[in-house]
């Protein structure tokens, strides 16, 4: 199958600019980048996609075997880069996709020029002195929350999503798939997301890396952001004066500015 169809790849912005690939996190799709895409597209060739099972990806391409670990998602990122023949890629990964980006960059370091890890966490579960912020019970509770909400989610959200006259900038055909997730796939993705431990992969990163965190993040604490920064030699750490796990939504200008400054002019 064509990778660009499978992952609903969208390419925007300056065709001659550096390639910036934006990888969305668990729970949403490429629409999550909408507020910062305009600023990035002025200078870069922006590549957006949906992980399998999210947004308008082709869910038939999903298999429990390939996608029960983050490696399958990392392979997808590499296949997208290869299909579009992208070189010197700047890979921006949000939330779980920060670790997917790390795996992709470690697998093919020559493909990537820079990494931007947005609110990353290499391990959500506490382990000895490491404080991921959650106990195993917490994660089980999250998985339960997902189970009790996903059926209602698609049914009750769809009508809301279809039209949004208040936010014309969100108009267009993309919004109708916003946050639409296949419940079976989401469950496996949630397990891969919240039960993975990628701490050992961080020191292997050989690509210049920027870590962006927010001052208040219930999912990835400042302590975790610092840990990632310390584990990746030569990385930079930016703490935005913003709240929440999705600064590209809560503080789009500051998030875009941090990325622009790190990536530099074309």
């Amino acid at each position: 199958m064509d990778v660009t169809t499978r992952n609903n790849v969208t390419v925007l912005g300056r065709a001659d600019g550096p390639a910036v690939v934006l990888a969305h996190g668990f729970g949403c799709d490429q629409n999550l980048w909408r507020l910062i895409v305009p600023a990035l597209a002025e200078r870069y060739r922006v590549v957006l996609f949906d992980h399998i099972g999210s947004g308008r990806s082709d869910a038939s391409a999903w298999s429990a075997e390939r996608y029960s670990t983050l490696d399958g998602y990392a392979e997808d990122v590499l296949e997208i880069c290869s299909a579009l023949d992208l070189r010197d890629v700047v890979l921006v990964g949000h939330s779980v996709s920060a670790m997917i980006a790390v795996l992709a960059a470690n697998s093919e370091p020559d493909r990537f020029a820079k990494l931007v890890l947005l609110t990353p966490s290499p391990c959500y579960v506490d382990d000895g002195d490491y404080r991921g912020g959650f106990s195993r019970d917490d994660i089980d509770e999250l998985l339960e929350s997902l189970d009790s909400n996903y059926l209602g989610w698609s049914a009750t959200m769809a009508p809301v999503i279809m039209g949004n006259p208040d936010r014309p900038e969100l108009g267009g055909e993309l919004t109708d798939s916003f946050c639409r997730t296949d419940p079976v796939i989401a469950r496996v993705f949630a397990r891969a997301t919240f039960l993975s431990d990628n701490r050992a992969d961080l020191p292997k990163v050989a690509v210049p890396t920027l870590v962006i965190q927010t001052a208040q993040d219930a999912i990835a604490s400042q302590e975790v952001g610092r840990f990632v920064h310390e584990q990746i030699a030569g990385s930079e750490l930016v703490t935005l004066d913003a709240t929440g796990h999705c600064p590209q939504l809560s503080a789009p200008e500051a998030t875009a500015a941090a990325i622009l400054e790190f990536v530099g002019a074309p």
Partner: peptide, 22 residues
């Protein structure tokens, strides 16, 4: 609860920002 909080951060928060209701 912790599970609900994570669900809020990953799903409901983005939904409110993008669509104004959930």
């Amino acid at each position: 609860t912790v599970g609900g909080r994570m669900y809020y951060e990953t799903h409901i928060g983005p939904m409110l920002t993008m669509h104004g209701e959930a």
